[in-house]
Design a binder for these strands. Structure first.
Lengths: 193, 193
DNA sequence: TTGTACATGTAATCAGTTACATGATTCT
DNA sequence: AGAATCATGTAACTGATTACATGTACAA
């Protein structure tokens, strides 16, 4: 077995291609023109990553030969790729991920659609909420250590973190509410049927 | 002249050592035990970075020989180091920095104390505010493109970004208010004197 | 005396950045 | 005709991660 874990970029590529098959150039354009994550659109990052994923057979390539033009390499997920993506999406958010790979929890949420059930998404959000709430408490406890007046600069910076994660909490709450509503309406649907 | 730019970690080390001279181990402990940035506390990152900075003569080392123990290498800023740090702090926040190195604007703010004047800090915050406000507008314009009902997942993710940067705006406003107050009271002080 | 904290480092690996290369196609 | 965009890649560099190495001081 090769190396186990994938980089965030590699997972992002899996997620995107999992939504619909794409070429490297499509991804390049997406990273360049939309606020999708904070990924670099440089070909030196994207193409080697795609090749790595293909070499590990998480991606399949098919050639688009509609024109005699330079062939476009269209990537799609293999079975293994689907599994790796789903496994990633199912991992609960951890404190470490929240701090070190701060965009990842949302990235994963973004790809969860149609890959995870509403129940699974709700429990993902619940875990996410717990981790954020715990981290806010951590930050608040540091706040106490910065009582001295000459530390007001540092307290402002810490306040920034607290505000940031509080707004994250608010988002999680509102997303959770939206999904609970969705679950209700999908159940109603079943009954009506 | 050697390579121009420094990594965020290297600037963070300059900033910390600029507050007070430190050993590598002090920094390791700081990264490990406080919510200071999101830096890795691994010695494999810290010590080589300190050595690079010393080689470029941005840092000076002096040996602590109080005990016959293994000598502690205490780093302090050189004149060049002070200048490099100040130049970094004076750079206005850019859209690119906001997105790609999202912790950096606050990190720089954190080190501005006693290195930048209140006026400079206020104009830094004003530039920061403008960039964040512009980016929120950008995100809002993407929001319009996600009207379709099957895009609600993506809209939620985008909403996350909007909330995050709005809370950042709020923080900037409150920090600005705090500094305007500080400026007023420091002027009063001068008058009283 | 066994282990934990102090203290600094190196070696292997690997992904990301920057810059360059190539050639076709479409727009102006 | 020339520029911009499509489309995919490679090569050099370099910083970060992980893991290991080494030895002291001090506390249980």
């Amino acid at each position: 077995m090769t190396k186990e874990h994938l980089t965030t970029l590699e997972y992002a590529l899996l997620g995107l291609i999992g939504i619909s098959p794409m070429t490297g150039y499509d991804i390049h354009k997406l990273f360049e023109t939309t606020p999708f994550g904070h990924f670099s659109s440089s070909p030196g990052a994207i193409y080697p990553a795609l090749n790595r994923l293909a070499r590990r057979s998480l991606l399949d390539t098919s050639m688009d030969k509609r024109k005699e033009a330079r062939p476009r390499r269209i990537y799609s997920l293999t079975k293994t790729g689907e599994e790796a993506l789903a496994a990633w999406l199912r991992q609960p958010v951890t404190r470490d991920e929240l701090i070190r790979i701060s965009g990842a929890p949302i990235l994963r949420f973004n790809f969860a659609k149609e890959r995870l059930s509403i129940e699974e998404i709700l429990s993902y959000l619940e875990g996410y909420r717990r981790v954020v709430a715990a981290y806010i408490d951590e930050l608040l406890s540091y706040d106490d250590q910065l009582k001295a007046p000459e530390m007001y600069h540092n307290r402002l910076a810490l306040d920034h973190g607290i505000r940031r994660y509080r707004s994250e909490l608010e988002w999680i709450t509102s997303a959770t509410t939206a999904f609970i509503r969705a679950r209700r309406s999908s159940r109603k649907h079943k009954v009506v049927r």
